[in-house]
Every structure is written in C-alpha cells, then in structure tokens.
Design a binder for these strands. Structure first.
Lengths: 159, 159
DNA sequence: GTCTATACCCCGATAGAC
DNA sequence: GTCTATCGGGGTATAGAC
C-alpha cells in the first residue's frame, strides 16, 4: 500500500478513501482483469482451426500487453480470501472452457485429434502464457514472429 | 523462519545454528534443486526423438515429485540477491540448453521441424511444468496417462 | 544447541487535525 | 481528501542464560 501511495503521490493513509482495504483492491484488480479477458476473447471464426488460431493470437497479445496484471494475479492469488479466490478461479475456468470448446468442436469436425481436451487446454494455455515471462520487445524476434511459431506448434500438437 | 522452526519442532532462534540467514537458506535450496535437476536429466537415447521422449517423461516426473521446491523456487526467486539470482538463472539456462540441444540434433537429423529451437524449448518447458500446477493423484487420469498425452502433443508439435 | 526475550523494521489500517 | 502520527502485528535476526 505504501508503494502504491508513493507511486500516485499521496500518503499511505489517503488510499483508504478509495478502497476499504487491500483485499478489496486486490480482488477488484483480478476480477476486472478476468472480466476483461472473458469479454475480449474471440469466439467466431471459420471452423475450429480458424477459431483456435484466433485464440492463440489473442491470448499472447492480451497477456503480453498486461504483463503486470498477469504477474500480480499469479503472485497474489494465494493472498485472496477463500471466497474471493473461488470467484477468480471460477472466471479462470470459464476462460479455459472457451478454449476447450474450440478443441471439442475441432474433434467433432474431424480436424483435430487430441486424447483429452481438458489436458490439451491446460497444456496450450500454460505454453502460451509462458511467453510473457521471457519475451521483451527489441529482442531477436518480433512478437508477430513468436506468435507465428507458437501457432504453428499448437496447430501441429492438436492436428 | 518461524514456520520452519515450528515444522521441525524448535524455536525460531535455534535455526540460526544451521544457516547464517534466510537468504542463504533460500539460495542453497534453489541451487540444490537445480543441481539435482541437471545431474538427473537424461541425455542418452536412440535418436533425437527417443531423447526428447525421455526428456518429457523425466521433466514431468521430476517436477511432480518436487512440487514444493518448484513452487518455492518460483515464488521466492525475486527475493534472492542479484548475485544469487544470476547463479540460479545460469543453472536454469543450462537445463534449457539440454533440451534445445535435443531439438537442434533432431533438426539436423531431419526428424524434427521447428522454426526457432530456443522458442520451442521455452514453449515445451512451460507446457510441461504446468502439469505441476493442476495435477493431483487420485484424479480422473493417472500421471502415466497425462505424460503419454503430453508426449504425444510435444512430439507432434516438433515433428 | 536450544531456550527466552527482545531489538528493529516493515506492513496494513485507523484516528483526528486541517 | 489529505495530512501526520500511531497502533498492533508480523517478519528476520541477535543476545545471553542454560
């Protein structure tokens, strides 16, 4: 709280005019992040493969442009009350379900071949989110090039 | 430190007969973990594909049986001094290089097709390590079944 | 080697003046 | 709405008796 106060140029006590406590601040941040994510995730496209491609591009871009929120959401997750934790987890599961539905549809269409769609979902999300931990602009490759290779690997992994 | 002391049945002050401070304790734990990892990672096998398969199985098993160390290593990484952080990171990079060498060899052999081997390395490790965050024994699938599907996805992603 | 006691610091949060 | 001052609690680490 003191760090936030310094950052915005007030004293620590003054923050409590805007939030009842740190827990609420943390929860509002995470819930807002997840709500934005769910509102922005694409769900249209030509066929399961097109939708998966859109999902991969979206996930990398969204998380890269919000690295701070992603980092905080992960590191502070265990500081939430059990109720708040459960609410954030429920939103996260909703997001996973979006990807799993694409995979299921692809299997039904006969264009994808995955053993268990839930495992494939978690594997893909872990792989994509990992980009935020090492990618920095100005490096050897552009985010577009990185995204292209990730899409290529994801496509082959489920095709 | 108080939690550790309670766990082992002594008072907090008594721990300082075994470690000069918390920083050393943290660093020794992480360095030990990484050294074990590097000592245990398999490097032999029939061809790049066989070596990759062995790597996948090893990585999942090693990290699953050491979930606590993996969790601490990640959460406490930023509490290391810059020097200790750099040393742990160097070990981590050595481990990544083991996987990347397998991918490079596979490309040379003509059995793998990946754009950038470094990106593929990071993608695969992120995907595999993710298993530790959700897998619990007694669930719908055994660790062997999960490992089999991950290997299938990894194989297809790079083939 | 372990204990009790405590120093010192940082944290979240509150009280009350302005 | 913001300030200063402070409370209560937790943290790491140390001192000194046994």
């Amino acid at each position: 709280m003191r760090a936030i106060a310094t950052e915005v140029g007030v004293q620590a006590g003054a923050l409590y005019n805007y939030t009842p406590d740190k827990q609420s601040l943390l929860f509002d941040l995470m819930e807002g992040h997840m709500t934005e994510l769910l509102a922005a995730v694409p769900n249209k496209g030509a066929g399961a493969e097109g939708r998966l491609r859109a999902f991969v591009g979206f996930h990398i871009d969204f998380h890269f442009t919000r690295q701070d929120a992603v980092f905080i959401s992960y590191m502070e997750l265990r500081n939430l009350t059990p109720e708040n934790f459960a609410r954030v987890e429920a939103l996260r599961r909703q997001y996973e379900d979006r990807l799993e539905q694409i995979l299921r549809d692809g299997v039904d269409e006969g264009v994808f071949a995955v053993g268990d769609t839930k495992i494939a979902t978690l594997a893909i999300i872990a792989m994509l989110t990992g980009v935020t931990t090492w990618f920095r602009e100005g490096g050897r490759l552009s985010l577009e090039q990185v995204t292209a290779q990730y899409w290529d690997m994801v496509r082959r992994a489920v095709t």
